[in-house]
């Protein structure tokens, strides 16, 4: 077998992740900028990056249950990369909104963040995700010690906020966001003991 050792498997996985995450983005912006492919490229790039960020977040959360169930410990080694790509997509999502939809009207942006619950929720989720992305650096992880794990448990809060953000953002097409809420709950139920213990975090470990 070619991909026998874990080192090689991880390398292959990483190549696949980079390709699968970056190619659609390059394709998206190329098409949105160059041709009249979409009548409203602004909404297209916002939705594409938004749903992409959510997908990647769910895949990130799928890693540890998969690793446990199939006893594939090495999968955990690509989890950070997946999480960072989720952040990258979320960053583009926000950038698209500010740059192409609001066109750098920061007064409007500020008002929208305060006034629209779905944007407020989205911004809270994005701020937390940014914090996680920054503290994913090795030296910060070491520096933070135990606090690091506590901080990174907020991923469960983030995914719930993102699911709400999606559900509240649509006009009447509730089926797709409902499916996403279902997937979110499923991933939380899989790790219910951990989530429950976090909810009663006053107790000793």
């Amino acid at each position: 077998m070619l991909w026998r050792n874990n080192q090689q498997k991880i390398l292959l996985l990483k190549v696949v992740i980079h390709t699968a995450a970056l190619l659609p983005i390059i394709n998206l912006y190329y098409q949105a900028i160059s041709v009249q492919l979409f009548a409203d490229p602004v909404k297209t790039v916002i939705h594409f990056t938004g749903i992409g960020a959510f997908n990647l977040l769910l895949i990130t959360l799928l890693v540890s249950p998969l690793a446990k169930y199939f006893k594939l410990g090495y999968l955990l080694r690509v989890r950070r990369l997946l999480g960072l790509y989720s952040f990258f997509y979320a960053l583009l999502h926000l950038f698209n909104f500010i740059a192409f939809d609001l066109q750098f009207d920061f007064t409007l942006m500020f008002n929208e963040i305060i006034k629209r619950p779905y944007i407020t929720v989205g911004m809270v989720a994005f701020s937390l995700l940014t914090l996680l992305a920054i503290t994913s650096l090795n030296f910060l992880k070491r520096k933070l010690g135990r606090t690091w794990q506590k901080l990174h448990n907020s991923i469960y809060l983030i995914v719930i906020l993102v699911a709400i953000h999606f559900y509240w953002s649509v006009k009447s097409e509730l089926i797709e966001p409902s499916v996403y809420i279902g997937l979110t709950l499923l991933l939380l139920i899989v790790r219910r003991y951990k989530v429950m213990s976090l909810l009663s975090s006053k107790k000793p470990n």
């Binding site: 949105a32 900028i33 009249q36």
Partner: peptide, 11 residues
Amino acid sequence: ITSGGLFTQNR
């Protein structure tokens, strides 16, 4: 929405 791509939108 007029002609063109991502950079030609007007608010």
